[in-house]
Design a protein around this nucleic acid. Structure first.
Length: 565
RNA sequence: CGGGGCGUAGCGCAGCGGCAGCGCGCCUGGUUUGGGACCAGGAGGUCGGCGGUUCAAAUCCGCCCGCCCCGACCA
Protein backbone atom coordinates (compact mmCIF):
# COMPACT_ATOMS: atom_id res chain seq x y z
CA UNK A 1 0.00 0.00 0.00
CA UNK A 2 1.23 3.43 -0.91
CA UNK A 3 0.75 6.00 1.82
CA UNK A 4 -0.09 8.62 -0.80
CA UNK A 5 -3.14 6.50 -1.67
CA UNK A 6 -4.11 5.30 1.78
CA UNK A 7 -7.54 6.13 3.17
CA UNK A 8 -7.01 7.36 6.71
CA UNK A 9 -4.40 9.89 7.79
CA UNK A 10 -2.17 10.16 10.80
CA UNK A 11 -2.59 13.16 13.10
CA UNK A 12 0.27 15.24 14.44
CA UNK A 13 -1.35 16.13 17.71
CA UNK A 14 -2.78 13.79 20.31
CA UNK A 15 -6.56 13.63 20.14
CA UNK A 16 -7.98 15.31 23.24
CA UNK A 17 -10.69 12.77 23.97
CA UNK A 18 -8.44 9.76 24.41
CA UNK A 19 -6.65 8.87 27.62
CA UNK A 20 -5.91 5.19 27.19
CA UNK A 21 -2.83 4.38 25.10
CA UNK A 22 -4.53 2.21 22.50
CA UNK A 23 -7.40 4.69 22.09
CA UNK A 24 -5.02 7.63 21.64
CA UNK A 25 -2.72 5.79 19.25
CA UNK A 26 -5.56 4.31 17.16
CA UNK A 27 -7.10 7.75 16.70
CA UNK A 28 -3.78 9.41 16.01
CA UNK A 29 -2.72 6.77 13.52
CA UNK A 30 -5.99 6.79 11.59
CA UNK A 31 -7.10 3.30 12.63
CA UNK A 32 -10.53 4.18 13.94
CA UNK A 33 -13.03 7.01 14.01
CA UNK A 34 -15.75 7.41 16.57
CA UNK A 35 -19.29 7.81 15.24
CA UNK A 36 -21.16 7.72 18.55
CA UNK A 37 -20.30 6.78 22.11
CA UNK A 38 -18.94 3.24 21.96
CA UNK A 39 -19.51 3.02 18.19
CA UNK A 40 -16.53 3.14 15.85
CA UNK A 41 -15.65 3.00 12.18
CA UNK A 42 -12.65 0.80 11.42
CA UNK A 43 -10.46 2.33 8.76
CA UNK A 44 -8.57 0.17 6.24
CA UNK A 45 -5.32 -0.18 8.15
CA UNK A 46 -7.15 -1.32 11.32
CA UNK A 47 -9.27 -3.73 9.32
CA UNK A 48 -6.14 -5.49 8.12
CA UNK A 49 -5.24 -6.37 11.69
CA UNK A 50 -8.85 -7.33 12.43
CA UNK A 51 -8.81 -9.67 9.44
CA UNK A 52 -5.54 -11.23 10.54
CA UNK A 53 -6.87 -11.93 14.01
CA UNK A 54 -10.06 -13.33 12.52
CA UNK A 55 -8.11 -15.55 10.17
CA UNK A 56 -6.11 -17.05 13.04
CA UNK A 57 -9.35 -17.57 14.96
CA UNK A 58 -11.01 -19.24 11.97
CA UNK A 59 -8.15 -21.62 11.45
CA UNK A 60 -8.00 -22.64 15.10
CA UNK A 61 -11.75 -22.99 15.38
CA UNK A 62 -11.89 -25.20 12.32
CA UNK A 63 -8.93 -27.22 13.60
CA UNK A 64 -10.92 -27.74 16.82
CA UNK A 65 -13.88 -29.02 14.82
CA UNK A 66 -16.10 -25.95 14.79
CA UNK A 67 -17.97 -24.86 11.64
CA UNK A 68 -18.59 -21.25 10.76
CA UNK A 69 -22.11 -19.95 10.32
CA UNK A 70 -23.87 -16.61 10.43
CA UNK A 71 -26.88 -15.53 12.43
CA UNK A 72 -29.13 -12.48 12.34
CA UNK A 73 -28.30 -9.37 14.33
CA UNK A 74 -31.94 -8.34 14.34
CA UNK A 75 -34.08 -10.72 16.37
CA UNK A 76 -37.60 -10.76 17.78
CA UNK A 77 -37.81 -9.67 21.40
CA UNK A 78 -40.14 -12.59 22.00
CA UNK A 79 -37.23 -15.01 21.68
CA UNK A 80 -35.44 -13.20 24.49
CA UNK A 81 -38.54 -13.27 26.64
CA UNK A 82 -38.65 -17.05 26.33
CA UNK A 83 -35.30 -17.39 28.10
CA UNK A 84 -36.01 -14.43 30.37
CA UNK A 85 -32.84 -12.81 29.14
CA UNK A 86 -34.65 -9.66 28.05
CA UNK A 87 -34.95 -9.04 31.78
CA UNK A 88 -31.48 -10.38 32.58
CA UNK A 89 -29.80 -8.04 30.11
CA UNK A 90 -32.04 -5.16 31.09
CA UNK A 91 -31.20 -1.82 29.48
CA UNK A 92 -28.07 -3.31 27.87
CA UNK A 93 -30.40 -5.04 25.43
CA UNK A 94 -31.01 -2.68 22.50
CA UNK A 95 -34.68 -2.72 21.59
CA UNK A 96 -36.44 -1.25 18.60
CA UNK A 97 -39.64 -1.65 16.61
CA UNK A 98 -40.05 -2.54 12.97
CA UNK A 99 -42.61 -0.93 10.63
CA UNK A 100 -45.30 -3.38 11.71
CA UNK A 101 -44.67 -2.29 15.29
CA UNK A 102 -43.15 -5.63 16.12
CA UNK A 103 -40.65 -5.45 19.00
CA UNK A 104 -37.14 -6.42 17.95
CA UNK A 105 -33.70 -6.43 19.52
CA UNK A 106 -30.16 -6.06 18.19
CA UNK A 107 -28.55 -9.22 19.44
CA UNK A 108 -26.02 -8.80 22.25
CA UNK A 109 -25.04 -12.46 21.75
CA UNK A 110 -26.55 -15.49 20.02
CA UNK A 111 -27.29 -18.38 22.39
CA UNK A 112 -31.03 -18.24 21.72
CA UNK A 113 -30.79 -18.38 17.95
CA UNK A 114 -28.06 -21.00 17.87
CA UNK A 115 -30.11 -23.19 20.19
CA UNK A 116 -33.08 -22.93 17.84
CA UNK A 117 -30.81 -23.91 14.96
CA UNK A 118 -29.45 -26.86 16.93
CA UNK A 119 -33.00 -27.98 17.66
CA UNK A 120 -33.55 -28.30 13.93
CA UNK A 121 -30.20 -29.78 13.05
CA UNK A 122 -29.44 -32.13 15.92
CA UNK A 123 -31.90 -34.92 16.65
CA UNK A 124 -29.80 -37.93 17.54
CA UNK A 125 -26.75 -38.74 19.64
CA UNK A 126 -25.29 -39.71 16.25
CA UNK A 127 -25.27 -35.99 15.36
CA UNK A 128 -23.14 -35.19 18.39
CA UNK A 129 -20.81 -33.62 19.26
CA UNK A 130 -21.55 -30.52 17.23
CA UNK A 131 -19.76 -27.19 17.36
CA UNK A 132 -20.43 -24.00 15.38
CA UNK A 133 -19.02 -20.51 15.47
CA UNK A 134 -19.70 -17.04 14.13
CA UNK A 135 -17.67 -13.85 13.82
CA UNK A 136 -20.26 -11.11 13.91
CA UNK A 137 -21.26 -7.71 15.14
CA UNK A 138 -23.07 -7.65 18.46
CA UNK A 139 -24.58 -4.75 20.30
CA UNK A 140 -24.77 -4.11 24.02
CA UNK A 141 -26.02 -0.73 25.17
CA UNK A 142 -23.33 -0.44 27.85
CA UNK A 143 -23.94 2.18 30.53
CA UNK A 144 -20.44 3.54 30.05
CA UNK A 145 -18.36 2.73 27.00
CA UNK A 146 -14.74 3.67 27.58
CA UNK A 147 -11.09 3.43 26.59
CA UNK A 148 -11.64 3.35 22.83
CA UNK A 149 -12.11 -0.22 21.65
CA UNK A 150 -11.72 -1.79 25.10
CA UNK A 151 -15.35 -1.33 26.10
CA UNK A 152 -17.69 -0.47 23.26
CA UNK A 153 -21.37 -0.89 22.50
CA UNK A 154 -21.10 -2.21 18.94
CA UNK A 155 -18.38 -4.81 18.61
CA UNK A 156 -17.34 -7.81 16.57
CA UNK A 157 -17.14 -11.02 18.46
CA UNK A 158 -16.24 -14.58 17.68
CA UNK A 159 -18.63 -16.85 19.52
CA UNK A 160 -18.57 -20.62 19.31
CA UNK A 161 -21.36 -22.83 20.64
CA UNK A 162 -20.92 -26.52 21.35
CA UNK A 163 -23.48 -29.28 21.77
CA UNK A 164 -22.71 -32.56 23.50
CA UNK A 165 -24.57 -35.62 24.69
CA UNK A 166 -23.23 -35.74 28.23
CA UNK A 167 -20.93 -34.04 30.72
CA UNK A 168 -17.94 -36.19 29.78
CA UNK A 169 -18.28 -35.23 26.13
CA UNK A 170 -18.63 -31.57 27.10
CA UNK A 171 -15.43 -31.89 29.15
CA UNK A 172 -13.60 -33.06 26.03
CA UNK A 173 -15.04 -30.29 23.89
CA UNK A 174 -14.28 -27.72 26.56
CA UNK A 175 -10.68 -28.81 26.86
CA UNK A 176 -10.25 -28.83 23.09
CA UNK A 177 -11.60 -25.28 22.91
CA UNK A 178 -9.38 -24.16 25.78
CA UNK A 179 -6.37 -25.44 23.85
CA UNK A 180 -7.61 -23.76 20.68
CA UNK A 181 -7.86 -20.47 22.57
CA UNK A 182 -4.32 -20.79 23.85
CA UNK A 183 -3.19 -21.50 20.28
CA UNK A 184 -4.97 -18.36 19.08
CA UNK A 185 -3.24 -15.98 21.49
CA UNK A 186 0.09 -17.70 21.01
CA UNK A 187 -0.22 -17.38 17.23
CA UNK A 188 -1.15 -13.71 17.58
CA UNK A 189 2.18 -13.27 19.35
CA UNK A 190 0.60 -12.01 22.57
CA UNK A 191 1.63 -12.92 26.13
CA UNK A 192 -1.51 -14.11 27.91
CA UNK A 193 -2.77 -15.87 31.02
CA UNK A 194 -5.43 -18.56 31.31
CA UNK A 195 -7.36 -17.98 34.50
CA UNK A 196 -10.31 -19.51 36.30
CA UNK A 197 -13.34 -17.26 36.03
CA UNK A 198 -16.73 -16.73 37.53
CA UNK A 199 -19.30 -18.41 35.34
CA UNK A 200 -22.16 -16.04 36.06
CA UNK A 201 -25.70 -16.89 37.05
CA UNK A 202 -26.50 -19.22 34.17
CA UNK A 203 -23.07 -20.75 33.59
CA UNK A 204 -22.16 -24.21 34.73
CA UNK A 205 -19.24 -25.20 36.86
CA UNK A 206 -16.29 -24.51 34.58
CA UNK A 207 -15.28 -21.20 33.11
CA UNK A 208 -11.98 -19.71 32.06
CA UNK A 209 -10.92 -16.28 30.95
CA UNK A 210 -7.96 -15.36 28.81
CA UNK A 211 -6.22 -12.25 30.05
CA UNK A 212 -3.60 -9.99 28.52
CA UNK A 213 -1.71 -8.66 31.53
CA UNK A 214 -1.39 -4.86 31.43
CA UNK A 215 -1.60 -2.03 33.94
CA UNK A 216 -4.55 -0.40 32.20
CA UNK A 217 -6.67 -3.55 32.50
CA UNK A 218 -10.05 -3.59 34.24
CA UNK A 219 -9.67 -7.08 35.67
CA UNK A 220 -7.62 -8.14 38.67
CA UNK A 221 -5.97 -11.54 38.47
CA UNK A 222 -4.52 -13.50 41.38
CA UNK A 223 -1.91 -16.06 40.54
CA UNK A 224 0.37 -18.35 42.45
CA UNK A 225 4.05 -17.52 42.13
CA UNK A 226 4.63 -21.28 41.75
CA UNK A 227 2.59 -21.06 38.56
CA UNK A 228 -0.06 -23.69 39.26
CA UNK A 229 -3.03 -21.42 39.96
CA UNK A 230 -4.51 -18.28 38.40
CA UNK A 231 -7.99 -16.88 38.80
CA UNK A 232 -9.98 -13.70 38.36
CA UNK A 233 -10.45 -11.98 41.71
CA UNK A 234 -14.20 -12.49 41.23
CA UNK A 235 -13.57 -16.20 41.57
CA UNK A 236 -10.19 -16.59 43.30
CA UNK A 237 -9.91 -18.64 46.48
CA UNK A 238 -7.03 -18.26 48.91
CA UNK A 239 -5.58 -19.48 52.17
CA UNK A 240 -5.57 -16.75 54.79
CA UNK A 241 -3.02 -16.55 57.55
CA UNK A 242 -3.45 -19.31 60.13
CA UNK A 243 -5.19 -18.19 63.30
CA UNK A 244 -5.07 -20.64 66.22
CA UNK A 245 -8.38 -21.79 67.64
CA UNK A 246 -9.04 -20.34 71.10
CA UNK A 247 -11.02 -21.50 74.11
CA UNK A 248 -14.17 -19.35 74.24
CA UNK A 249 -14.07 -16.68 76.94
CA UNK A 250 -17.02 -14.93 78.54
CA UNK A 251 -18.81 -12.33 76.40
CA UNK A 252 -17.97 -8.84 77.61
CA UNK A 253 -19.34 -5.47 76.55
CA UNK A 254 -16.90 -2.61 76.10
CA UNK A 255 -17.52 1.10 75.62
CA UNK A 256 -16.05 2.26 72.28
CA UNK A 257 -16.96 5.92 71.98
CA UNK A 258 -16.77 7.23 68.41
CA UNK A 259 -15.26 4.05 66.98
CA UNK A 260 -16.71 3.38 63.52
CA UNK A 261 -14.25 1.51 61.32
CA UNK A 262 -12.43 -1.80 61.74
CA UNK A 263 -9.10 0.01 61.85
CA UNK A 264 -10.27 2.36 64.60
CA UNK A 265 -11.69 -0.57 66.52
CA UNK A 266 -8.49 -2.62 66.27
CA UNK A 267 -6.38 0.37 67.34
CA UNK A 268 -8.73 1.32 70.17
CA UNK A 269 -8.72 -2.16 71.70
CA UNK A 270 -5.14 -3.01 70.68
CA UNK A 271 -6.14 -6.21 68.89
CA UNK A 272 -5.18 -7.25 65.34
CA UNK A 273 -7.85 -6.74 62.66
CA UNK A 274 -8.27 -10.49 62.20
CA UNK A 275 -9.59 -10.68 65.77
CA UNK A 276 -12.54 -8.50 64.82
CA UNK A 277 -15.71 -9.29 62.89
CA UNK A 278 -16.62 -6.95 60.08
CA UNK A 279 -20.31 -6.36 59.37
CA UNK A 280 -21.59 -5.33 55.94
CA UNK A 281 -25.26 -4.90 54.99
CA UNK A 282 -26.50 -5.95 51.60
CA UNK A 283 -29.88 -6.19 49.94
CA UNK A 284 -30.38 -9.20 47.69
CA UNK A 285 -33.61 -9.85 45.83
CA UNK A 286 -35.22 -7.19 48.02
CA UNK A 287 -34.19 -8.93 51.25
CA UNK A 288 -31.80 -7.47 53.85
CA UNK A 289 -28.74 -9.66 54.35
CA UNK A 290 -26.29 -9.26 57.22
CA UNK A 291 -22.83 -10.27 56.02
CA UNK A 292 -20.02 -10.89 58.47
CA UNK A 293 -16.41 -11.87 57.96
CA UNK A 294 -13.07 -11.47 59.63
CA UNK A 295 -12.08 -7.81 59.99
CA UNK A 296 -8.96 -8.09 57.83
CA UNK A 297 -10.90 -9.37 54.80
CA UNK A 298 -13.17 -7.78 52.20
CA UNK A 299 -16.47 -9.07 50.83
CA UNK A 300 -16.36 -10.57 47.33
CA UNK A 301 -19.71 -9.47 45.92
CA UNK A 302 -19.61 -11.93 43.03
CA UNK A 303 -19.20 -14.88 45.39
CA UNK A 304 -21.89 -13.46 47.64
CA UNK A 305 -24.31 -12.99 44.77
CA UNK A 306 -23.70 -16.53 43.51
CA UNK A 307 -24.32 -17.89 47.02
CA UNK A 308 -27.61 -16.00 47.35
CA UNK A 309 -28.76 -16.80 43.76
CA UNK A 310 -30.04 -13.26 44.05
CA UNK A 311 -30.96 -10.48 41.76
CA UNK A 312 -29.86 -6.90 42.13
CA UNK A 313 -27.37 -7.39 44.95
CA UNK A 314 -26.33 -4.05 46.35
CA UNK A 315 -24.93 -2.48 49.49
CA UNK A 316 -27.87 -1.44 51.65
CA UNK A 317 -28.63 2.24 51.67
CA UNK A 318 -28.62 4.14 54.98
CA UNK A 319 -32.39 4.18 54.70
CA UNK A 320 -32.59 0.40 54.32
CA UNK A 321 -30.17 -0.14 57.21
CA UNK A 322 -32.20 2.07 59.50
CA UNK A 323 -35.46 0.43 58.50
CA UNK A 324 -34.01 -2.99 59.44
CA UNK A 325 -33.11 -1.65 62.87
CA UNK A 326 -29.37 -2.12 62.39
CA UNK A 327 -26.69 0.10 63.91
CA UNK A 328 -23.99 0.92 61.37
CA UNK A 329 -20.58 0.97 63.03
CA UNK A 330 -21.68 -1.21 65.92
CA UNK A 331 -23.72 -3.86 64.12
CA UNK A 332 -23.40 -7.42 65.26
CA UNK A 333 -24.69 -10.88 64.46
CA UNK A 334 -24.96 -11.45 68.22
CA UNK A 335 -28.57 -11.14 69.26
CA UNK A 336 -29.67 -10.23 65.76
CA UNK A 337 -33.19 -11.35 64.88
CA UNK A 338 -35.22 -11.39 61.71
CA UNK A 339 -32.31 -10.75 59.34
CA UNK A 340 -30.54 -13.39 57.29
CA UNK A 341 -26.94 -13.80 58.48
CA UNK A 342 -24.31 -14.84 55.96
CA UNK A 343 -20.81 -15.51 57.29
CA UNK A 344 -17.50 -16.11 55.60
CA UNK A 345 -15.65 -19.32 56.50
CA UNK A 346 -12.96 -17.14 58.09
CA UNK A 347 -15.12 -16.72 61.21
CA UNK A 348 -14.46 -20.38 62.02
CA UNK A 349 -10.73 -19.76 62.30
CA UNK A 350 -9.64 -18.24 65.60
CA UNK A 351 -12.31 -17.06 67.98
CA UNK A 352 -13.09 -14.61 70.78
CA UNK A 353 -13.78 -11.93 68.19
CA UNK A 354 -14.58 -8.31 68.81
CA UNK A 355 -18.01 -7.72 67.34
CA UNK A 356 -20.54 -4.93 67.45
CA UNK A 357 -23.05 -4.75 70.28
CA UNK A 358 -25.95 -3.53 68.17
CA UNK A 359 -25.81 -0.46 70.36
CA UNK A 360 -24.23 2.85 69.46
CA UNK A 361 -20.64 3.19 70.80
CA UNK A 362 -20.47 -0.32 72.28
CA UNK A 363 -18.77 -3.51 71.11
CA UNK A 364 -18.52 -7.05 72.45
CA UNK A 365 -15.34 -8.93 73.22
CA UNK A 366 -15.10 -12.71 72.91
CA UNK A 367 -17.94 -13.25 70.46
CA UNK A 368 -17.87 -16.82 69.13
CA UNK A 369 -19.92 -18.34 66.32
CA UNK A 370 -22.01 -21.27 67.44
CA UNK A 371 -22.22 -20.04 71.02
CA UNK A 372 -23.20 -16.40 70.58
CA UNK A 373 -24.75 -16.44 67.12
CA UNK A 374 -25.67 -18.91 64.40
CA UNK A 375 -25.20 -17.82 60.77
CA UNK A 376 -27.86 -18.95 58.27
CA UNK A 377 -25.14 -19.57 55.67
CA UNK A 378 -21.39 -20.04 55.97
CA UNK A 379 -19.36 -20.00 52.76
CA UNK A 380 -16.26 -18.52 51.11
CA UNK A 381 -17.45 -15.00 50.34
CA UNK A 382 -14.18 -13.15 50.96
CA UNK A 383 -11.96 -11.47 48.40
CA UNK A 384 -8.60 -13.12 47.81
CA UNK A 385 -5.63 -10.77 47.86
CA UNK A 386 -1.94 -10.74 46.99
CA UNK A 387 0.17 -12.04 49.86
CA UNK A 388 -2.37 -14.68 50.87
CA UNK A 389 -1.70 -18.37 50.33
CA UNK A 390 -2.38 -20.29 47.11
CA UNK A 391 -5.42 -22.57 47.48
CA UNK A 392 -3.78 -25.48 45.66
CA UNK A 393 -0.19 -25.46 46.92
CA UNK A 394 1.94 -23.89 49.64
CA UNK A 395 2.86 -20.93 47.42
CA UNK A 396 1.96 -17.27 47.86
CA UNK A 397 -0.49 -15.37 45.64
CA UNK A 398 0.51 -12.32 43.65
CA UNK A 399 -1.78 -10.12 41.56
CA UNK A 400 -1.75 -8.34 38.21
CA UNK A 401 -4.21 -6.26 36.24
CA UNK A 402 -5.24 -7.37 32.80
CA UNK A 403 -7.74 -7.16 29.98
CA UNK A 404 -10.18 -9.99 29.36
CA UNK A 405 -9.82 -10.99 25.72
CA UNK A 406 -11.65 -14.29 25.78
CA UNK A 407 -14.06 -16.19 27.97
CA UNK A 408 -15.23 -19.79 27.74
CA UNK A 409 -18.14 -21.35 29.65
CA UNK A 410 -19.87 -24.61 30.19
CA UNK A 411 -23.46 -23.53 29.75
CA UNK A 412 -25.16 -26.82 30.59
CA UNK A 413 -28.78 -27.30 29.58
CA UNK A 414 -30.40 -23.98 30.40
CA UNK A 415 -30.94 -22.90 26.80
CA UNK A 416 -31.66 -26.35 25.37
CA UNK A 417 -34.27 -27.08 28.05
CA UNK A 418 -35.86 -23.66 27.83
CA UNK A 419 -36.04 -23.67 24.04
CA UNK A 420 -36.68 -27.40 23.63
CA UNK A 421 -33.46 -28.50 21.93
CA UNK A 422 -33.44 -32.24 22.60
CA UNK A 423 -31.84 -35.33 21.11
CA UNK A 424 -32.50 -39.05 21.41
CA UNK A 425 -29.74 -41.02 23.14
CA UNK A 426 -28.74 -44.61 22.47
CA UNK A 427 -31.57 -45.90 24.65
CA UNK A 428 -34.09 -43.77 22.78
CA UNK A 429 -34.42 -41.37 25.72
CA UNK A 430 -35.06 -37.71 24.96
CA UNK A 431 -32.42 -35.49 26.55
CA UNK A 432 -31.50 -31.81 26.39
CA UNK A 433 -28.34 -30.87 24.52
CA UNK A 434 -25.47 -29.95 26.80
CA UNK A 435 -23.98 -26.67 25.67
CA UNK A 436 -20.80 -24.67 25.96
CA UNK A 437 -19.98 -21.21 24.64
CA UNK A 438 -16.67 -19.63 23.79
CA UNK A 439 -16.19 -15.93 23.02
CA UNK A 440 -13.44 -13.58 21.84
CA UNK A 441 -13.87 -9.84 21.32
CA UNK A 442 -11.88 -9.18 18.17
CA UNK A 443 -11.59 -5.38 18.42
CA UNK A 444 -10.84 -5.59 22.10
CA UNK A 445 -8.07 -8.08 21.38
CA UNK A 446 -6.55 -5.66 18.88
CA UNK A 447 -6.73 -2.82 21.42
CA UNK A 448 -5.40 -4.97 24.26
CA UNK A 449 -2.43 -5.97 22.11
CA UNK A 450 -1.48 -2.29 21.88
CA UNK A 451 -2.22 -1.57 25.53
CA UNK A 452 0.31 -4.26 26.21
CA UNK A 453 2.83 -3.23 23.57
CA UNK A 454 3.54 0.44 22.88
CA UNK A 455 5.97 3.19 23.84
CA UNK A 456 5.91 6.98 23.88
CA UNK A 457 6.36 7.12 20.11
CA UNK A 458 3.59 4.71 19.17
CA UNK A 459 2.44 1.15 18.70
CA UNK A 460 4.68 -1.88 18.59
CA UNK A 461 2.93 -4.64 16.67
CA UNK A 462 3.57 -8.32 17.01
CA UNK A 463 4.34 -9.47 13.46
CA UNK A 464 1.45 -11.97 13.06
CA UNK A 465 -1.20 -9.29 13.58
CA UNK A 466 0.61 -6.19 12.31
CA UNK A 467 -1.35 -4.44 9.52
CA UNK A 468 1.75 -4.78 7.34
CA UNK A 469 5.04 -6.42 8.13
CA UNK A 470 7.30 -3.87 6.44
CA UNK A 471 7.29 -0.08 6.48
CA UNK A 472 9.28 1.03 3.44
CA UNK A 473 10.37 4.64 3.84
CA UNK A 474 11.67 6.59 0.87
CA UNK A 475 13.42 9.77 2.00
CA UNK A 476 13.49 12.47 -0.67
CA UNK A 477 10.98 10.47 -2.63
CA UNK A 478 11.16 12.99 -5.49
CA UNK A 479 14.84 12.18 -6.00
CA UNK A 480 14.78 9.99 -9.16
CA UNK A 481 17.35 7.50 -7.88
CA UNK A 482 15.53 7.12 -4.56
CA UNK A 483 12.22 6.72 -6.34
CA UNK A 484 13.62 4.15 -8.74
CA UNK A 485 15.22 1.99 -6.08
CA UNK A 486 12.35 2.29 -3.62
CA UNK A 487 9.82 1.33 -6.29
CA UNK A 488 11.96 -1.65 -7.25
CA UNK A 489 12.29 -2.88 -3.67
CA UNK A 490 8.59 -2.29 -3.07
CA UNK A 491 7.80 -4.52 -6.04
CA UNK A 492 10.36 -7.18 -5.08
CA UNK A 493 9.09 -7.41 -1.53
CA UNK A 494 5.49 -7.69 -2.64
CA UNK A 495 6.42 -10.28 -5.25
CA UNK A 496 8.07 -12.20 -2.43
CA UNK A 497 4.74 -12.22 -0.60
CA UNK A 498 5.54 -9.54 1.99
CA UNK A 499 2.95 -7.03 3.10
CA UNK A 500 4.47 -3.61 2.64
CA UNK A 501 3.36 -0.13 3.54
CA UNK A 502 5.30 2.21 1.24
CA UNK A 503 5.78 5.77 2.46
CA UNK A 504 6.08 7.48 -0.91
CA UNK A 505 4.81 10.83 0.38
CA UNK A 506 6.76 14.02 -0.29
CA UNK A 507 7.32 14.56 3.44
CA UNK A 508 10.49 15.33 5.35
CA UNK A 509 12.45 12.65 7.14
CA UNK A 510 11.19 13.63 10.58
CA UNK A 511 7.55 13.31 9.59
CA UNK A 512 8.13 9.91 8.01
CA UNK A 513 10.13 8.48 10.90
CA UNK A 514 7.60 9.68 13.41
CA UNK A 515 4.74 8.13 11.46
CA UNK A 516 6.70 4.90 11.14
CA UNK A 517 7.19 4.82 14.91
CA UNK A 518 3.51 5.66 15.43
CA UNK A 519 2.25 2.88 13.16
CA UNK A 520 4.73 0.48 14.71
CA UNK A 521 5.12 -2.05 11.90
CA UNK A 522 7.72 -4.70 12.77
CA UNK A 523 10.44 -3.70 10.27
CA UNK A 524 11.34 -0.29 8.92
CA UNK A 525 13.28 -0.17 5.66
CA UNK A 526 14.85 3.17 4.65
CA UNK A 527 16.04 4.21 1.21
CA UNK A 528 17.57 7.67 0.86
CA UNK A 529 20.24 9.49 -1.17
CA UNK A 530 22.59 8.55 1.65
CA UNK A 531 21.91 4.80 1.43
CA UNK A 532 22.09 4.90 -2.35
CA UNK A 533 25.50 6.55 -2.25
CA UNK A 534 26.73 3.71 0.01
CA UNK A 535 24.88 1.05 -2.04
CA UNK A 536 23.11 0.06 1.15
CA UNK A 537 19.62 -0.23 2.58
CA UNK A 538 18.83 0.52 6.22
CA UNK A 539 16.75 -1.89 8.31
CA UNK A 540 15.39 -1.33 11.80
CA UNK A 541 13.16 -3.35 14.08
CA UNK A 542 10.37 -1.41 15.79
CA UNK A 543 10.73 -3.59 18.84
CA UNK A 544 14.18 -2.15 19.55
CA UNK A 545 17.84 -2.14 18.69
CA UNK A 546 19.96 -0.07 16.35
CA UNK A 547 19.35 0.30 12.65
CA UNK A 548 21.53 -2.01 10.56
CA UNK A 549 22.91 -1.38 7.08
CA UNK A 550 22.86 -4.17 4.53
CA UNK A 551 24.12 -4.26 0.95
CA UNK A 552 21.45 -3.20 -1.51
CA UNK A 553 21.18 -6.60 -3.14
CA UNK A 554 20.63 -8.38 0.15
CA UNK A 555 17.82 -6.20 1.47
CA UNK A 556 14.99 -8.55 0.54
CA UNK A 557 16.64 -11.64 1.99
CA UNK A 558 17.58 -9.81 5.19
CA UNK A 559 14.02 -8.58 5.67
CA UNK A 560 12.70 -12.09 5.19
CA UNK A 561 15.26 -13.42 7.66
CA UNK A 562 14.31 -10.83 10.29
CA UNK A 563 10.62 -11.68 9.89
CA UNK A 564 11.32 -15.37 10.20
CA UNK A 565 12.77 -14.88 13.72
C1' C B 1 -28.24 6.63 37.25
C1' G B 2 -24.77 9.90 40.81
C1' G B 3 -20.23 13.22 40.67
C1' G B 4 -16.81 16.16 37.57
C1' G B 5 -15.41 18.30 32.81
C1' C B 6 -16.04 19.76 27.70
C1' G B 7 -18.77 21.22 22.82
C1' U B 8 -15.65 27.60 18.36
C1' A B 9 -12.21 25.38 10.90
C1' G B 10 -10.11 18.40 9.55
C1' C B 11 -7.01 18.14 14.63
C1' G B 12 -5.36 20.93 19.15
C1' C B 13 -6.97 25.36 21.42
C1' A B 14 -7.76 30.97 22.59
C1' G B 15 -11.65 34.59 22.66
C1' C B 16 -16.40 35.25 27.32
C1' G B 17 -21.35 41.54 25.30
C1' G B 18 -19.25 45.35 19.86
C1' C B 19 -16.04 42.80 12.32
C1' A B 20 -14.71 34.86 14.45
C1' G B 21 -8.97 34.17 15.95
C1' C B 22 -4.12 31.27 16.77
C1' G B 23 -1.01 26.74 16.00
C1' C B 24 -0.96 22.24 13.20
C1' G B 25 -2.99 20.08 8.90
C1' C B 26 -4.98 21.32 3.67
C1' C B 27 -4.23 24.12 -1.56
C1' U B 28 -0.59 27.12 -5.06
C1' G B 29 4.47 28.71 -6.06
C1' G B 30 9.50 28.71 -4.50
C1' U B 31 13.68 27.26 -1.28
C1' U B 32 14.98 22.97 1.58
C1' U B 33 15.89 17.52 2.55
C1' G B 34 18.09 11.59 8.01
C1' G B 35 13.77 12.63 13.52
C1' G B 36 7.21 16.50 13.18
C1' A B 37 11.74 22.47 7.71
C1' C B 38 11.39 27.73 5.72
C1' C B 39 9.27 31.99 2.76
C1' A B 40 5.13 34.04 0.10
C1' G B 41 0.10 33.65 -1.26
C1' G B 42 -4.69 31.09 -0.42
C1' A B 43 -9.14 27.93 0.87
C1' G B 44 -11.89 26.48 4.95
C1' G B 45 -16.98 28.42 10.28
C1' U B 46 -25.25 27.45 10.79
C1' C B 47 -19.21 29.23 17.40
C1' G B 48 -23.66 21.62 19.39
C1' G B 49 -29.40 22.87 18.94
C1' C B 50 -33.77 25.68 20.33
C1' G B 51 -35.69 29.72 22.95
C1' G B 52 -34.96 34.25 25.91
C1' U B 53 -32.42 39.06 27.55
C1' U B 54 -30.08 43.19 24.73
C1' C B 55 -29.41 48.51 20.03
C1' A B 56 -25.96 44.28 19.61
C1' A B 57 -24.94 37.26 21.89
C1' A B 58 -19.65 32.50 20.44
C1' U B 59 -19.87 35.57 24.99
C1' C B 60 -25.44 36.58 29.68
C1' C B 61 -30.02 33.36 31.13
C1' G B 62 -33.22 28.83 30.42
C1' C B 63 -34.21 24.14 28.24
C1' C B 64 -32.43 20.24 25.24
C1' C B 65 -28.64 17.24 22.64
C1' G B 66 -23.81 15.17 22.26
C1' C B 67 -18.88 13.67 24.04
C1' C B 68 -14.98 12.53 27.84
C1' C B 69 -13.37 11.07 32.91
C1' C B 70 -14.55 8.80 38.03
C1' G B 71 -18.23 5.74 40.35
C1' A B 72 -22.49 2.43 39.94
C1' C B 73 -23.11 -1.35 36.17
C1' C B 74 -20.69 -5.30 33.08
C1' A B 75 -21.92 -13.52 30.05
Amino acid sequence: MRMTRMFGKTLRQDPAEAETASHRLFLKAGFIHQIASGVYAYLPIALRTIHKIEQIIREEMEAAGAQELKMPSLQPLELWDQTNRATAFGPNLMRLKDRRDREMVIAPTHEEVVTLLARLSVQSYRDLPMNVFQIQTKFRDEPRPRAGLIRVREFDMKDAYSFDADEEALDLTYRRMLTAYQNIYRRCGLPFMTVEADSGAIGGKDSHEFILPTESGEDLILFCTNGDYAANVERAASRRGEVPKEEPLALEEVHTLGVRTIQELADFLSVPAQKTLKAVFYVSGGEMVFVTLRGDLEVNEVKLNNLLHGENLHIATDEEVKRAGLVAGSASPVGLKGVKIVADTSINEGGNFVAGANREDYHLRNANPGRDFEPDLVADIAQAAAGQGCPTCDGILDSTKGIEVGHIFKLGTFFSETLGAHFLDQEGQQKPLIMGCYGIGVGRLMAAAIEQSHDDAGMIWAAPIAPYQVHLVALNADNPEVALQAEALYKDMRDAGLEVLFDDRPETAGVKFNDADLLGLPIRVVISPRTIKASEVELKLRSGGEAIKVPQGEALEQVKALLAD
